[in-house]
Design a protein around this nucleic acid. Structure first.
Lengths: 211, 211
DNA sequence: AAAAACACACCATACGGTCGGTATGTGTCA
DNA sequence: TGACACATACCGACCGTATGGTGTGTTTTT
């Protein structure tokens, strides 16, 4: 038994709890709109702990983006869309999966690094770059399947796998913006249908083809 | 001659100058990251003038979104993409125009209401709704041409003009997010090429078709 | 014993907002 | 036409609080 002491929150994971609080609060209120005190309250730690683990609020922003990259990587690696043996089917399954997880509270399915980058791209280059690493790193995980599908189906494309992979992220990020403006997740799902249709067109698929 | 007085900035347009400052500063630093003092300094007015014209900072946010809606409406109405006689050509010309104006400083070509909505959608519903009006109002200006093109070309679509019009905005908003993260406008233009290709596919156009 | 992981009181400043006052335009009526 | 009343536009000092950040001390782990 780990012998809990007088302190209710377990010691040694304040950093993680702060990063989780950052992930949730920043998605709901933005970076500048989330104060250090807010984060400490949500993580159930004091300011001392905060500045013990992060040299500044901006440093937490960088760490939060890195944390997002790690957790989402693990999440998508474990996701079911890798199942199909056909590369193109995996790509379409990815889009379907992204659509499927757009449900519930907006703050819970939207993207931390998209929000963060849009807000601080000019005032906090370190955070922006961490966001870029997460976003484009995730896009890169799609490239191999897209390229394999392109060659397998002999598509003479005037686009690259890299470019199409990035475009999927464009649509997803834009879908989040419209969903927030309309306060309606359906607005985001709608655009993922267009993305699905676009990819099928690129690969000369009929709409009946099952993903 | 209007007889200028001892005051350097002309009297009577403080409100407009504040809205212009808001448009520029919020796009660069975000809403929460822009203070009332920042706005006053940029507009060359005092706080007294600010709170004379706006009851609160949030009220300014709403007014800035409305101001954006007005100015962009005028801008797009006067834009050259309305030239072609063919509705589909006008739609493609719109996409080309949107691509063409993505150049220079990021803060200067990105969308105020997209940034604003993404940041305050949960904490300031009034601002969010004003952003939605601007964004979806603009999208609606494309619907007629899309629908006309669909009928003219006899497309049996499983999508609506309304939905495709919104999707163009999704791609544009997402393109801005990626451009900010990568700190590179080319990242945004790239996705507009995919949007152009998608629309051509939807309408069974060959790539050679000139817009 | 030493280092890491906190807690907490405290600080300087920046923030949104208020308030009393002044300058400028505008309508009205003799 | 001019004088007065009134409204609008704007100024700038001030207020209470929230903010990011610090310093010192205490607890827990190694």
């Amino acid at each position: 038994m780990p012998r809990p002491t007088k302190h209710a929150p377990e010691r040694g994971n304040a950093r993680t709890r702060l990063l989780e609080a950052a992930r949730d609060l920043i998605r709901a209120k933005g970076f500048a709109g989330t104060s250090v005190d807010d984060l400490c309250k949500a993580a159930n730690v004091t300011k001392g702990a905060f500045f013990h683990h992060f040299s500044s609020k901006e440093a937490l922003g960088v760490a939060a983006a890195d944390f997002w990259a790690e957790t989402t990587s693990a999440f998508f690696e474990a996701a079911p869309y890798h199942g199909p043996t056909n590369p193109l089917d995996r790509v379409l399954a990815y889009v379907a999966f992204r659509k499927a997880i757009i449900a519930g509270e907006i703050a819970e399915f939207t993207c931390l690094v998209g929000t963060l980058a849009q807000e601080v791209y000019a005032s906090a280059p370190d955070i922006r770059d961490a966001c870029a690493r997460s976003m484009f790193g995730h896009a890169a995980t799609l490239e191999a399947d897209i390229e394999a599908a392109r060659q397998a189906r002999g598509i003479d494309a005037d686009w690259t796998a890299e470019s199409l992979a990035r475009h999927t992220q464009t649509v997803i990020q834009g879908a989040f913006v419209l969903a927030k403006a309309a306060n309606d997740p359906a607005m985001a799902r709608e655009s993922l249908d267009h993305l699905d249709r676009y990819i099928r067109h690129l690969f000369h698929l009929t709409r009946e083809h099952a993903a």
